[in-house]
Simulated assay, not measured.
Amino acid sequence: MQHARKFTIEKDKNEYRLLFSAMASPCEVLIEIPSDSHTTEILENLVNNLACIITDEVWRIEDKYSRYDPHSVCSLINSSQGQTVSIDKETYLLLNFANVCYELSDGLFDITSGILRKVWVFNGSDNIPDKAQVEAVLPLIGWNKVKFAQQAITLPSGMEIDFGGIGKEYAVDRCILLAKEITEYPILINLGGDLAATKPRENNKPWVIGVEHPGFENKTNMVVSLYQGALATSGNAKRFLLKDGVRYSHILNAKTGWSIINAPRSITVSSEQCVQAGILATLSLLQGENAEAYLDDQEVKYWAVR
């Protein structure tokens, strides 16, 4: 996939702000420079180096795992027509993580369920698929039908995988690791609302994070103070269908092919890593009305909006 691969850098007092687009989302990186730090020229070189490394890594992951890119690993696997495809270590580790999530969720989280988009189009309309349409797709869903090992994967013909449920969070964690190798300055990486911080700001001050309220107008956005670690949000505020007073979420049950009902509008989870926060937010929504109880059992900090 071709990108403009452009970014901008803004400076405000002792903070640099890197802005770019990736994974269909606005992205930003905040870099706080302590007041007693180096000369301007050294700082600008450091920030530019960070900007290049972080954006290159995000775009690399997007290009490698996007199902929209015909040259990606994801597309190569999806077009294999049942033939075995060689994979590298990074891809194996992502697939293994997806396998763990599948098992932990008793099959509710399934990276082969993206094919349900052929019958579900979440555009705010009342166009609900009928039972026959959903059941026609179900035979093409089931991670347990996929064979994979450290160096290869075999996907049954007609099935697809989609890394969208873990890709952005994985990119956040990768960039945090790279940033820590380059500088000890406090950094916050935000990829479309999935984010993480390397450490607190100067004088042990937290990063102040605004989380958009998933409801209607006149609702106050939530503000979270984050010292370090990650936040990830999952919800159905913008992707849903509405028919006869029933709201159909884009969060789909991979077993039945139908929307999860009675789930919160939004779940934000805090964890040490973004992939952990993201998958916990998603798995909790898949519990429907039991979302909060599920997260209570995990003993993690979270915010739910119904």
Rank of each mutant, 00 (worst) to 15 (best):
Lys145Cys: 08
Lys145Met: 11
Lys145Gln: 15
Val146Ile: 13
Lys147Gln: 13
Ala149Tyr: 06
Ala149Glu: 14
Ala149Trp: 03
Gln151Ile: 12
Ile153Thr: 04
Ile153Asn: 04
Thr154Tyr: 00
Thr154Pro: 06
Thr154Ser: 02
Leu155Asp: 03
Leu155Met: 01
Leu155Gln: 03
Ser157Asn: 08
Ser157Glu: 15
Met159Val: 11
Glu160Arg: 10
Gly164Tyr: 06
Gly165Glu: 11
Ile166Glu: 14
Gly167Ser: 14
Gly167Trp: 05
Glu169Phe: 07
Glu169Cys: 15
Ala171Glu: 12
Ala171Met: 12
Val172Ile: 12
Ile176Leu: 11
Leu177Ala: 03
Leu177Trp: 07
Leu178Asn: 10
Ala179Asn: 06
Ala179Tyr: 06
Lys180His: 02
Glu181Leu: 08
Glu181Ala: 10
Ile182Met: 08
Glu184Gln: 12
Pro186Arg: 12
Ile187Ser: 00
Ile187Lys: 05
Ile189Gln: 05
Ile189Thr: 03
Asn190Arg: 09
Asn190Lys: 09
Asn190Val: 10
Asn190Leu: 09
Leu191His: 06
Gly192Lys: 08
Gly193Leu: 05
Gly193Pro: 02
Gly193Ser: 10
Asp194Thr: 07
Asp194Asn: 14
Thr198Ala: 01
Lys199Glu: 05
Arg201Cys: 09
Arg201Phe: 07
Asn203Thr: 14
Asn203Val: 13
Asn203Met: 14
Asn204Ser: 11
Lys205Arg: 14
Lys205Asp: 10
Pro206Met: 13
Pro206Gly: 09
Val208Arg: 04
Val208Gln: 04
Gly210Ile: 15
Glu212Asp: 07
Glu212Met: 09
His213Thr: 08
His213Arg: 02
Pro214Leu: 01
Pro214Asn: 03
Gly215Arg: 00
Gly215Pro: 00
Phe216Ser: 03
Phe216Val: 06
Glu217Gln: 00
Asn218Leu: 00
Lys219Tyr: 06
Thr220His: 00
Thr220Arg: 01
Asn221Asp: 07
Asn221Lys: 00
Met222Thr: 13
Met222Gln: 08
Met222Arg: 09
Val223Gly: 01
Ser225Asn: 15
Ser225Thr: 10
Tyr227Cys: 11
Gln228Met: 10
